[in-house]
Design a binder for these strands. Structure first.
Lengths: 157, 157
DNA sequence: ACAATCCGGACCGCGCTTGTCCTGTATCGG
DNA sequence: CCGATACAGGACAAGCGCGGTCCGGATTGT
């Protein structure tokens, strides 16, 4: 599988809603939760992470809310994923995984995932959030089709 | 992160060892465990999965062992990942995730991960196991450097 | 100044992945 | 023919990260 966390999915949903057809309105977390159907605390958490990464700006206080920092077409998905999940890397032995594999006989293929990581990084920076927007329902949030055309995409199998 | 499971890493290590400089020798799981430094039960589990996917052939009984089905240059990493982790997909709502998100207000971006999945699939099929082999230590398994040059690869951050 | 409202950080339970072990089966050597 | 070796398949326990929730502090409008 590839287990991109569900949070990143939520982030894309929220950002898409927040930047729908170039809107720069201030939207509250509660409002976004209602519009996207995602639980409110979860939306708040996602927005928090996105704010820390600079993808959205926040306005506190009454009548406050969130605003997108850049248009969707200028926001590669890589940025969203990094904001939610941290640095993109494939290898298991990443960011000091408690002692580095095993002390003895350490990974013979250490660092060999680099070309793979680079390829994926490139793929993810080439696609922006705007590319993920379906022009059809870019306006009133249809919210119709339920659960059939899963994404899955088997490779070889 | 991207959380490619550690098992896939082991699979690459084991396959690389098994197909080192075009060898087609029969190797036992115990032998491979000793050569790679990975725990033997884990090696057995990985080899089992690889065998089910047809990436290695097995010979049971005394003097049995495993053999690679194809040279490393003909084995894209995508095959290995699919063998270990299952179909490659990024979205969270994959393979009937118990009711499909939430019944109501289902993912507004359903299916929008397709271009991302395609791009990653392409990147993973373009790189073979041979590309991950460092020509320098393709021969006697140096097993020297310990734990410094992590893979990590931050994207934007 | 008060109150409504919203952001920020901390916390905890659940599920998955990881790693191991055990039993059964097939093959080869003696 | 029998025993030893080595793979096959499943079940099982532990560790960890994710997901989801809550509460406190800050801020703005009235």
């Amino acid at each position: 599988m590839f287990r991109l966390s569900k949070m990143s999915d939520y982030a894309v949903v929220v950002l898409s809603e927040l930047g729908r057809d170039g809107t720069v309105d201030k939207r509250s977390a509660t409002d976004l939760a209602a519009a996207t159907g995602v639980a409110e605390p979860t939306v708040a958490k996602v927005l928090k992470l996105l704010g820390a990464a600079g993808l959205v700006t926040s306005q506190r206080g009454a009548q406050g809310g969130y605003r997108i920092a850049r248009p969707l077409s200028r926001t590669p998905i890589a940025d969203v994923i990094v904001a939610i999940e941290g640095p993109i890397a494939l290898a298991a032995c990443v960011d000091g995984a408690t002692g580095g594999c095993e002390a003895e006989a350490c990974c013979p293929v250490r660092g060999r995932w680099d070309p793979v990581n680079s390829a994926i990084r490139r793929a993810l920076t080439d696609i922006t959030l705007a590319d993920m927007q379906c022009p059809a329902w870019a306006t009133p949030m249809p919210q119709a089709r339920m659960a059939e055309p899963r994404v899955t995409l088997a490779v070889a199998e």
